[in-house]
């Protein structure tokens, strides 16, 4: 069989849609947590929900995990209906909840094997698989320890290992590195990246822009229950902000005064964004912009030129909230 044929053969699998949501809604009484979102997640990709706390990310995750019933719209997970096929869907999912829900009374390896039991995995197989996964998350040495003795980062890695016990088609992680120190975060990222390399489909929520940038092939930005933008990190940056940003600061000058200065900067760069403590100037040429600012007779305390990030995208898209604060 030729190489081309085998690629052709694998095409439909690569494009296989794992989750398809149309106008998905969820309300709790009066409160609408998710106000009608559409998204598709394909096999093999790392997909992210980016948004501030309370944007509706976790609610969406719970609906995908079939533990929360949508109030409206349709959703298919693995081509199945979450309402009727919850157990079947969950048997193919790996879930890492935000609060880990590990059992503090049990040892590390028991947390793995007991969990395997829920999927009907045989004891011997479960033990072997647990050992393999603990190796993967570098917890082999702590196998016999009580979970309550582990650090936050180790607990999160254990939760990730646990979610892989059933060889899931899709791993969903809710805020995988929230509350972890930088070193622990990087260790988690490294493991998730490796999973991605192995072809595991990943779905994660985060409010860290750097996390989304590092891990996600594609992401949606959620705000107040709605998807306000979607695409790859690069596409989002290209579409919504310029390539570079100049951060301009003035010591001793805040909010209202910054607005006055911002008005004076009008015309420089593509867009001016005054924040409470600094002004962001979006531009495609940071050096030229810096010169232009000086040329207007404005002398900032500091100027920082950097590449635009998802943080800027988020700020631009939800910026109105920041303005309203004043």
């Amino acid at each position: 069989m030729s190489a081309a044929a085998s690629i052709l053969h694998s095409m439909p699998i690569r494009d296989e849609i794992l989750i398809r949501a149309r106008d998905l809604r969820k309300s709790y009484g009066e409160y609408e947590a998710v106000k009608g979102v559409d998204f598709e997640i394909k096999r093999g990709e790392a997909f992210g929900f980016l948004g501030a706390n309370g944007a509706g990310k976790s609610t969406t995750m719970r609906m995908i995990g079939c533990v929360s019933q949508p109030s409206g719209g349709t959703m298919e997970v693995f081509g199945l209906d979450p309402h009727t096929d919850g157990p079947a869907i969950r048997s193919r999912l790996g879930v890492v909840p935000q609060d880990n829900t590990l059992d503090g009374m049990l040892t590390v390896v028991e947390n793995m094997t007991v969990y395997a039991g829920y999927f009907g995995i045989k004891r011997k197989q479960a033990k072997a698989k647990a050992a393999e996964l603990l190796e993967f998350v570098q917890l082999t040495a702590r196998s016999e320890d009580q979970v309550s003795d582990l650090s936050g980062g180790m607990q999160r890695r254990l939760a990730i290992a646990r979610s892989l016990i059933n060889e899931p088609d899709l791993v969903i992680l809710d805020e995988p590195t929230t509350g972890l120190d930088p070193q622990a975060r990087h260790l988690v990222w490294e493991r998730l990246f490796q999973l991605k390399e192995q072809g595991t489909s990943i779905l994660l929520t985060t409010h860290y822009m750097d996390e989304a940038e590092q891990l996600c092939d594609r992401l949606v930005v959620m705000d107040e229950g709605l998807i306000i933008a979607s695409g790859s990190p690069r596409e989002l940056i290209d579409t919504h902000v310029t390539k570079e940003v100049v951060e301009v600061r003035f010591s001793g000058i805040h909010t209202t005064d910054l607005h006055d200065i911002a008005e004076k900067l009008e015309g420089i760069g593509a867009q001016i964004e005054p924040l409470p403590d600094r002004i962001l100037v979006y531009t495609d040429d940071a050096d030229a912009t810096a010169i232009a600012i000086e040329a207007r007779g404005i002398h900032p305390t500091s100027q920082l030129a950097r590449r635009a990030t998802l943080e800027d995208v988020f700020l631009r898209l939800t910026g109105r909230a920041l303005v309203e604060d004043e």
Binding site: R90, P97, T101, Y115, F119
Partner: peptide, 14 residues
């Protein structure tokens, strides 16, 4: 979350 038994069981086929 401090006990969590039911919560993590819920994310499995159970």
């Amino acid at each position: 979350e401090w006990g969590g038994g039911y919560l993590h069981q819920r994310s499995t086929p159970l």
